[in-house]
């Protein structure tokens, strides 16, 4: 494997980690706000607090890791994406900031105001929308070089059906991932009411997820034909992903094996995510930037990969400890210990 491929694989893996962990987080915030809004707060509140509390900061680090890593491995992305993404990414930062700080204020500070959790929930829906714009831009057609400087065509972006399909997909995915995960988590906590509510949400959001995913493939067929054709070459990956999706829905529908459902769900998204990534290869930004012409020098690449391996050796055991204490500890999950 070339250094470029190793680099992008590492980064893509962390981004995938972020997508899953953050989706659970964003979705949970939304369900929490929604249940408060409809007056059923006590069903979900406890479960969600219990899951979110110990991990929220870790979630954010996944994102930081990705954007710091991409500047390290592919410094030219700073020039192209840095210049063009000012507005969408700034909005995302502000939403993240509101979410992160209000969460901490409410959890550790004083017991909450309804307005907080409402904003918190809403920010969780706008965030995937704001962040997914980056994917849309990467498909090309929205960035032009003017006097050698990249410029973003906001109007084109805003009016493109592709943008909106990707936004819908990201929101549906967030709610679906989160609902499936929390169904399992609530069952583990022996909280039957919450299990029931989350199961319903999981089934509700399965439909929009698939419809919007199909919509994107269709949009791509004329927006970026090269990418579409490469996706078609990899059709079996997406097919497999779809089968796993059916598996998850089937399990949830029949109220069995929620743990397996979560594993299938992760498999489904992993296949789709890596399939999308492979078919995007070698472009980081159609048609301006590829993996190869943006790559850092060899010395830096080797140093980064070495640091990465050393870092993982440190992190994996600690992450395991965290998960064991909070996610897989029966007593904690069921609320018997604080």
């Amino acid at each position: 494997m070339s250094l470029e491929i190793i680099g992008i694989t590492v980064l893509w893996t962390f981004l995938f980690g972020y997508v899953i962990v953050a989706s659970i987080d964003f979705g949970a915030g939304f369900f929490n706000a929604y249940s408060q809004f409809t007056g059923k707060e006590h069903i979900l509140n406890k479960i969600i607090q219990r899951y979110l509390s110990p991990v929220w900061e870790v979630t954010n680090v996944f994102l930081v890791f990705f954007f710091v890593g991409i500047i390290g491995f592919f410094p030219k992305t700073a020039f192209y994406y840095g210049t063009t993404l000012l507005v969408p990414v700034s909005i995302a930062i502000i939403l993240l900031a509101i979410r992160g700080s209000y969460y901490a204020f409410e959890t550790y500070g004083t017991k909450g105001h309804r307005g907080y959790s409402f904003m918190y929930g809403l920010a969780g829906l706008f965030l995937p929308a704001a962040l997914s714009v980056v994917l849309t831009i990467s498909e090309g057609g929205f960035v032009f070089l003017v006097d050698g400087k990249p410029v973003l065509d906001y109007w084109g972006l805003f009016t493109s059906p592709l943008t909106w399909s990707i936004v819908v997909l990201s929101v549906a995915a967030v709610l679906y991932i989160s609902a499936v995960f929390l169904t399992w988590y609530a069952r583990k906590a022996k909280d039957w009411q919450a299990t029931k509510a989350m199961r319903k949400y999981a089934l509700i959001w399965a439909g929009p997820l698939m419809i919007s995913a199909g919509g994107i493939v269709y949009e791509l067929s004329f927006h970026n034909e090269a990418h579409f054709n490469r996706m078609m070459e990899l059709w079996w990956i997406f097919g497999l992903s779809f089968l796993l999706f059916l598996g998850t829905v089937w399990l949830i529908w029949n109220r069995i094996k929620y743990g397996l459902a979560v594993i299938l769900l992760i498999g489904q998204f992993a296949l789709a995510f890596y399939g999308y990534g492979f078919s995007h290869y070698p472009y980081l930004l159609y048609p301006h930037l590829t993996l190869y012409d943006s790559f850092t020098n060899e010395a830096m690449a080797i140093a980064l990969i070495t640091a990465f391996i050393a870092g993982l050796a440190l992190l994996l055991p600690s992450l395991y400890l965290l998960l064991r204490l909070f996610l897989f500890n029966q007593n904690y999950v069921q609320g018997r210990t604080k």
Partner: peptide
């Protein structure tokens, strides 16, 4: 950042591990 990314990305990258930890 494009220039710095080429030369000084290493400590920036290591910082994320420190945060993680």
């Amino acid at each position: 950042m494009e220039l710095a990314g080429n030369v000084i990305a290493l400590p920036l990258f290591m910082e994320t591990f420190a945060f993680f930890f």
